[in-house]
């Protein structure tokens, strides 16, 4: 590991629908809109699964706020992830839905509610053997809106 961190790695988004800015507070979720049928997708698309065309697609910036559609609390997690944690589907304001972790709140059913208002932030979550860092987005409850 010491060897890996010594090399100058790149900073990369963990998922293609996350666009990285100069600093972490400039990161945002990207989407694409099919100009033929108007379907809004999270992340880049080459083809449209609704109207069966190749677009064209307009790249858009998705909202960094939204509401919790559904959630679950994962107690048996994959080995490198700390459990329990909250996994959820968040509907973004203005359209688009994403899978995410909800953090900043104790993972207990009584703390969760459907429609909870949440806000996105990004952080480094991992590093590969070549020393590249990976940035992921997470959501946290918006104070004063729940």
């Amino acid at each position: 590991m010491a060897e890996a961190t010594a090399t100058q790695g790149e900073v990369r988004p963990l998922v293609p629908h996350l666009t990285l800015g100069e600093t972490r507070d400039q990161d945002y979720l990207n989407g694409s809109v099919c100009k033929k049928c108007g379907t809004k997708y999270v992340g880049p698309r080459l083809f449209c699964g609704v109207c069966s065309s190749d677009g064209p697609f307009e790249t858009i910036r998705l909202a960094n706020t939204g509401t919790v559609h559904v959630w679950t609390i994962i107690h048996q997690a994959t080995p490198y992830v700390q459990a329990p944690y909250i996994a959820a589907v968040v509907d973004l304001d203005g359209g688009g839905s994403v899978n995410t972790n909800i953090v900043g709140i104790e993972p207990k059913p009584e703390n969760m509610k459907f429609g909870m208002r949440v806000k996105m932030f990004t952080e480094k979550v991992s590093e590969d053997r070549e020393g590249n860092s990976y940035i992921a987005y997470r959501f946290t409850p918006i104070e004063g809106e729940n």
């Binding site: 963990l14 996994a87 972790n101 991992s126 990976y134 992921a136 987005y137």
Partner: peptide
């Protein structure tokens, strides 16, 4: 390192 599982839902 590049797995989404548990990091992005």
């Amino acid at each position: 390192a590049t797995s989404l599982e548990g990091r992005v839902g």
